[in-house]
Simulated scan of single mutants.
Amino acid sequence: MTKAPAECQTKEDVRLEIDRIDQALLSLLAERHGYVTRMAEIKTDPHEAYDPTRIEAIIAKQRKRAEELDLDEDQAELIWRTLINWNVNYEKGIIAARKRHG
């Protein structure tokens, strides 16, 4: 049974809830990765993977959402920049490999 933070009475209670959330986050990241892979299949040039205007729009949107959720905006930005940087490099690799092989 899911417990709200205030309902957790022990460190173990808290750890169980964090583990549950981590599993959900990992599942969502895996789902997101499928869409990133598909985007890499659709794009035709490795340079398309890096779109600074779009990246900054995403960061601004996530900072605003973080603020609305009472989450530190700098922490949210760091997480999203890390995710975006990884995705850009991943997309570039897929697109470049496809161009080399075919």
Rank of each mutant, 00 (worst) to 15 (best):
Asp51Cys: 09
Arg100Ala: 14
Leu78Gly: 12
Ile18Tyr: 02
Glu41Cys: 04
Gln9Glu: 14
Ala76Arg: 08
Ile21Ala: 00
Leu25Ser: 05
Ala49Asp: 07
Cys8Thr: 04
Arg15Gly: 00
Leu69Met: 08
Arg81Ala: 01
Glu41Gln: 13
Glu41Ile: 00
Ile21Tyr: 00
Ala30Asp: 12
Ala6Pro: 04
Ala24Arg: 13
Ile55Phe: 07
Arg65Ser: 04
Leu16Ile: 02
Lys11Val: 15
Asp45Pro: 01
Ala96Lys: 12
His101Lys: 05
Val14Arg: 02
Ile84Pro: 02
Glu17Lys: 01
Leu69Asn: 08
Gln75Thr: 11
Leu71Lys: 08
Glu12Tyr: 01
Glu67Leu: 08
Ile18Arg: 01
Arg54Lys: 15
Tyr90Asn: 05
Leu83Trp: 06
Tyr35Arg: 06
Tyr90Ile: 01
Ala30His: 10
Met1Cys: 04
Ala40Asn: 06
Ala49Trp: 03
Ile42Ala: 12
Thr44Asn: 06
Gln23His: 02
Glu73Thr: 14
Tyr90Asp: 02
Thr2Met: 07
Lys64Gln: 11
Gly102Asp: 14
Asn87Val: 00
Thr53Gly: 09
Asn87Arg: 05
Glu68Tyr: 09
Arg63Tyr: 02
Pro52Asn: 14
Ala57Pro: 03
Ala97Gln: 11
Ile94Pro: 07
Ala57Tyr: 07
Ala60Glu: 13
Ala76Phe: 02
Arg65Asp: 04
Lys11Glu: 12
Ser27Trp: 00
Glu7Ser: 15
Ile79Lys: 00
Arg15Ala: 01
Ile84Asn: 02
Pro5Arg: 12
Trp86Ser: 11
Glu41Phe: 05
Trp86Asn: 12
Ala76Cys: 10
Gly34Phe: 01
Arg20Trp: 00
Arg20Gly: 05
Ile59Arg: 03
Glu56Arg: 13
Trp86Pro: 01
Ile58Ala: 10
Asp74Val: 03
Gly93Glu: 13
Ile55Gly: 03
Pro46Arg: 15
Arg38Asn: 11
Lys61Ile: 06
Arg54Val: 13
Gln75Val: 13
Ile59Tyr: 11
Ala40Cys: 08
Ala4Ile: 06
